[in-house]
C-alpha cells in the first residue's frame, strides 16, 4: 500500500498538488465568467497530470507516466480546447441569472470540504491511516465531488454544467491516483477516452440546443414538467 510508507518529501508534494486542485475548483465556484472556469479546469487537469507522474515516480508505477502524459493531453489540452470551441460558438460568456452569489457558493463549498474531511477521517481511522495522505486524498476526492454537484445545481449555462461534470470526474481521478495507483491501466485509459466522447456528445447537443431551443441556459428548459 503506497500511502502507508511514503517519504515526507513525496507526501508533501502529493499534498501540495491535491490542495492546488481543490483550490482551483474553488476558483471555478467563485467565478461567473465561463472562460475563467475553463482556465481553472485546464490548470486543475495539469496539476492532476503532475500528481500522476509524481505517484508513478515515488510509488514505482511506471505505467502512471503514460497516464500522466495522456491526462495532460486529453484533460489538460484537448478537452479545454473542445470546450473553448463550444464557448466560441455561443453568445454568452458569463452566468447571467445566479441562484447563488459566488461568495455564498464559496462558503457552502467550504462547508462541504469540512463534511468531506469528517467522513474521510472516519474512513481512514478504520484502517489506522489517520496520519497519512489517505485522509487528504479522500477529502479532496469527496469535496470535489460535492463542489461539482453544487456547480451543477446552481449554474445554468450549458458550459458550466459540462465543466461541473468534469470536476466530478477530476475529483475521482485525483483520488484514485493516490489511493489505488495500481488500478489496471486499461480502465484508466478507457475512462479518459470515455470523457472525450462525453464532451464531444455535449458539444453536439449544445449545438442542437442553440438551433432548436434557442437557449443554452437550463433555466429556460422548462417545457417538460409533471
Amino acid at each position: 500500500m503506497l500511502v502507508q510508507h511514503l517519504d515526507p518529501l513525496a507526501s508533501s508534494l502529493f499534498s501540495l498538488l491535491a490542495i492546488v486542485s481543490l483550490l482551483l475548483s474553488f476558483v471555478m465556484l467563485g467565478s461567473r465568467w465561463l472562460k475563467n472556469y475553463l482556465y481553472a479546469f485546464a490548470a486543475e487537469s495539469w496539476a492532476i497530470a503532475a500528481l500522476s507522474a509524481a505517484v508513478g515516480h515515488y510509488g514505482g508505477y511506471p505505467e502512471l507516466y503514460v497516464v500522466a502524459v495522456l491526462t495532460l493531453l486529453f484533460r489538460g489540452l484537448l478537452l479545454p480546447y473542445l470546450i473553448w470551441r463550444i464557448i466560441g460558438r455561443l453568445e454568452v460568456d458569463r452566468e447571467i441569472h445566479e441562484i447563488l452569489q459566488p461568495s455564498s457558493g464559496l462558503v457552502i463549498g467550504a462547508l462541504f470540504v469540512m463534511f468531506a474531511l469528517a467522513v474521510s477521517y472516519r474512513i481512514a481511522a478504520e484502517f489506522h491511516l489517520e496520519l497519512t495522505i489517505a485522509v487528504l486524498a479522500l477529502t479532496v476526492m469527496l469535496s470535489m465531488k460535492l463542489i461539482g454537484f453544487l456547480m451543477l445545481a446552481v449554474r445554468h449555462e450549458a458550459i458550466s454544467q459540462i465543466l461541473g461534470l468534469l470536476v466530478l470526474e477530476n475529483g475521482i481521478f485525483l483520488g484514485s491516483q493516490i489511493l489505488v495507483p495500481g488500478m489496471p491501466l486499461l480502465i484508466e485509459l478507457v475512462i479518459l477516452f470515455d470523457l472525450l466522447v462525453i464532451v464531444a456528445c455535449f458539444g453536439v447537443l449544445v449545438g442542437y440546443l442553440v438551433t432548436h431551443v434557442g437557449t443554452t441556459s437550463a433555466l429556460d428548459l422548462k417545457r417538460l414538467v409533471g
Binding site: A158, Q161, C201, L221
Partner: peptide, 9 residues
C-alpha cells in the same frame, strides 16, 4: 432537446 439534455446531464 430538453429531454436529451436533462437525460445526459
Amino acid at each position: 432537446m430538453e429531454a436529451a439534455w436533462k437525460y445526459i446531464m
